[in-house]
């Protein structure tokens, strides 16, 4: 395998993703964990760029890093402003989580072992076309218009429901 600048940056992103993902599950301070999760999600976005999935990469950052994680942080800060906020792990949770992780690892290893061509994956410099236009055509014009609209309505219902539940009732 030739070692170019591109592979160097790729391994940088991969290392960043894995290291911060480890930090998410090992760090005791909940805000530090949330911060590490941000680095992980950002690293995944970087990996998408290497797959030439430009739209997906940008959306990953907008939705997960810019939206969901901010809300998580927001929630943590609203519920507790103290620095000593710690995570307590029970033994039962440890066993359950470890079991699920182990099963997932086995599944992934099976997939990797059964993928015959992964050794041949070298960068041949192919530039794929930008994906945004194709995604837009598929969602709004061709195959997936109905599922897309159904999902939008579902999200709208969830949104209104959330607003209704979180709102303090004003009775007269």
């Amino acid at each position: 395998m030739e070692f170019t600048l591109k592979t160097f940056i790729f391994y940088g992103f991969a290392l960043m993703t894995i290291a911060s993902a480890l930090a998410v599950v090992t760090v005791r301070n909940i805000v530090h964990a949330a911060f590490a999760l941000m680095v992980t999600l950002f690293g995944v976005a970087g990996l998408y760029v290497f797959l030439q999935a430009d739209f997906l990469a940008a959306t990953q950052v907008i939705v997960y890093v810019g939206g969901i994680l901010v809300l998580i942080l927001f929630g943590v800060m609203m519920t507790s402003g103290r620095l000593e906020m710690r995570i307590h792990i029970e033994r039962g949770q440890l066993l359950l989580g470890g079991g699920i992780s182990l099963a997932l690892l086995m599944l992934l290893l099976t997939v990797i072992a059964n993928t015959p061509i992964w050794k041949n994956l070298t960068d041949d410099g192919t530039q794929l076309a930008p994906t945004t236009e194709r995604i837009g055509q598929l969602i709004l014009n061709e195959k997936f218009l109905l599922p897309f609209e159904v999902v939008s309505v579902l999200l709208l219902v969830a949104l209104i429901g959330a607003a209704l539940i979180s709102r303090k009732e004003v009775r007269d």
């Binding site: 911060f35 430009d54 940008a58 959306t59 950052v61 907008i62 890093v65 810019g66 901010v70 945004t132």
Partner: peptide, 17 residues
């Protein structure tokens, strides 16, 4: 880049951190 606007929106959303 082809997704210029999305890039800007994505990076702007990082500013809140």
């Amino acid at each position: 880049i082809n997704i210029g606007i999305l890039f800007i929106l994505a990076i702007t959303s990082l500013g809140v951190y």
